[in-house]
């Protein structure tokens, strides 16, 4: 559906996208993951035909985005990052306008608008001025706009950015439902975002593809940097036990009301974190330190990126079109 080869985009001296190549097959739901400023939006804009590329070739459903832009754009439903809308129009009016603009025949327009509103759950706001909508509703109107002409490909730029947790869940539900009828490419900087809806993930950092694979593979790269142990008393005994362990490089202690929280960080060379956790818990219990709670410290996505880009090479790059990744979005 999407084929990107050696895409490079330069803004003056700033290299936004650097020799990026990837493919998205028909019917896939692919997450485009990267920290802020990684080049996600720029890449999606190029795909949507709103930004030119410095070099490279992009085709949408076999249509070159530069030489056959009109035909390529017909096949895309694009939702820009900030979801800019005409505030002076009502939701229904706006979607009817967009449907006409995208060439939906007059006879089918009403039905398409109604279906798009239903799919993105904005039917109850059909007569509301867009300027008066909440952020969550605006986001969904943007989604309805992307859907209104029933394009085979949806490109969604941070569809849940700026929403509250309830709204995020709702939008995710909507996107999950789209996978059966459309090919979806969505960008995000939150790992859990792709977990819920995407079959395959492309990880991008500083304009380069650093990893590609199933959600499980990417998640396995998200190594916990340490564990947190909550113990009875002032934690002096526990501290003595933990500092003896070779895999712990550093311990921060936080003393509270009758208990202490010890934050252990694994040393860089430690490889088997689960075994180390087991060992530490066992020795703490054995020493009678009064363990009350143990939790793995979760790593942020930025740390995963740091891990991925540390040696300049992507550890988990797999051949494009890997069947394992594709099978999971079914």
């Amino acid at each position: 559906m999407i084929s990107v080869s050696h895409l490079t985009k330069r803004y003056g001296t700033h290299l936004a996208v650097d020799d990026l190549s990837f493919e998205v097959g028909k019917g896939e739901v692919v997450g485009f993951l990267g920290p802020n400023g990684a080049g996600k939006s720029t890449t999606l804009r190029v795909l949507a035909g709103f930004a030119g590329m410095t070099s490279g070739v992009v085709t949408i459903d076999g249509r070159d985005i530069e030489t056959d832009s009109f035909e390529a754009r017909k096949r895309i439903g694009y939702m820009p990052e900030a979801v800019p809308l005409y505030g002076e129009m009502r939701v229904g009016e706006y979607l009817a306008f967009r449907a006409e603009l995208k060439g939906v025949p007059r006879g089918r327009r009403r039905a398409r608008v109604a279906l798009a509103m239903e799919k993105s759950k904005v039917e109850d706001r059909e007569m509301t001025l867009i300027g008066n909508l909440s952020k969550g509703y605006k986001q969904r109107v943007g989604l309805a706009d992307a859907l209104v002409a029933d394009p085979p490909l949806l490109i969604l730029d941070e569809p849940t950015a700026g929403l509250d947790p309830n709204q995020i869940r709702e939008v995710r539900e909507v996107i999950k439902g789209l996978g059966s009828d459309h090919t979806v490419l969505l960008s995000t900087h939150i790992l859990s975002e792709v977990e819920s809806s995407c079959g395959r993930v492309l990880v991008i950092n500083r304009g380069r593809l650093v990893a590609e694979g199933s959600v499980a593979k990417i998640k396995s790269l998200q190594r916990s940097p340490g564990i947190e142990v909550r113990v009875r008393g002032d934690g002096a005994l526990a501290l003595a036990v933990i500092t003896k362990d070779a895999d712990v490089s550093r311990v921060d202690v936080e003393r509270g009301d009758g208990e202490a929280l010890l934050r252990c960080t694994w040393s860089k060379k430690s490889l088997d974190a689960p075994a180390a956790s087991e060992r530490i818990i066992a020795s703490l219990v054995g020493a009678g330190a009064g363990v009350r709670a143990v939790a793995a410290v979760s790593s942020s996505l930025e740390e995963v990126f740091a891990e991925l880009t540390r040696d300049g090479a992507a550890p988990e790059i797999r051949p494009i079109g890997d069947p394992e990744g594709a099978a999971e979005d079914a």
Binding site: A48, G49, F50, R73, I76, Y78, P80, P84, L85
Partner: peptide, 8 residues
Amino acid sequence: IEPLMTAP
């Protein structure tokens, strides 16, 4: 202008 120009 972005949604406008990305339409066909």
